[in-house]
Design a protein around this nucleic acid. Structure first.
Lengths: 151, 151
DNA sequence: TATTGTTATACTCTATAACTATA
DNA sequence: TATAGTTATAGAGTATAACAATA
């Protein structure tokens, strides 16, 4: 994705932020917007959410769709299409569980290979977007964000 | 918006987070997801982005659409529909500028009244979602997020 | 009865490309 | 030529409601 507004003149005076600057919600949204753009530009294979899903399946082989949905705070109907896409790319497979209502999820060999590569790129991406933070600040930010959204 | 997965059993063991827990990008996305849900539930009139737009116009009366788009890191074509919606609700008006290519944006009386109410609700929302943070931590988080996404 | 996965459907937010009026 | 606003179109990500199979 191109950076929006990159075709606009850059000389205009800065807008006043008004009451916006002091809002955590605003800063959070803008920061996430920035990170998302950098992620998309450097890891075109996969969105942040999809990559997270693969990591979660890797860490919890055999997890069911509903449990995964719950862990990612998504509806289980949303999960179906997402998993369809990852499965059709050959990165994961569904296997019927002993409770025959459920599907267990496993990464395929190709999925593990792809994920390993993606993880290296994510590490680069993280370093790039947090370049203005010291490593102590980075740690601190992680803790504060964790407090904002427990679990 | 309902909290997704709220109809799922809550007793299952917690999933391992794997490598996810250490990623700023992941924490940021999840935190923003949480905040967005609380915002939507407590301020149904307006999305966070729309509310931010009104605040920016309030702080910069007469701003043009393109400058506003640039300040919010949105494409100017995206701005058109958003402003159409806010204008049709009677909260802002476009006035032709002296450069007749441009529209200047102003809040209407109704827009100012609505925004004042919305701002009070946003203040409540911010307090609620940052309830687990001390005021020093809240300040610190604001600074760190600002470093992540300068301007 | 309750849960899992699924389908059909719709909504929000956003972008790209091409157009027009103006500068 | 370049910029501002606009339109048509498309894509990603998400939700709700209803359904069949299974527990």
């Amino acid at each position: 994705m191109k950076r929006p507004g990159s075709d606009l003149p850059r000389d205009a005076a800065r807008l006043s932020q008004g009451d916006l600057a002091g809002l955590i919600g605003y800063r959070l949204r803008r920061a996430q917007q920035e990170l998302f753009r950098d992620f998309a530009a450097s890891i075109p294979d996969l969105s942040p959410g999809r990559a997270g899903l693969l990591m979660l399946i890797e860490a919890n082989p055999g997890v069911t769709q509903s449990r995964l949905a719950q862990a990612m705070a998504l509806d289980r109907s949303t999960m179906v299409g997402v998993l369809d896409a990852l499965e059709s790319r050959g990165w994961l497979e569904r296997r019927k569980g002993s409770d025959r209502r459920t599907n267990g999820l496993w990464l395929t060999r190709a999925g593990r290979v792809t994920l390993a590569r993606v993880k290296r790129r994510i590490a680069d991406h993280e370093m790039r977007v947090t370049a203005r933070l010291s490593s102590a600040e980075r740690e601190r930010l992680l803790v504060l964000l964790g407090k904002l959204c427990p679990e």
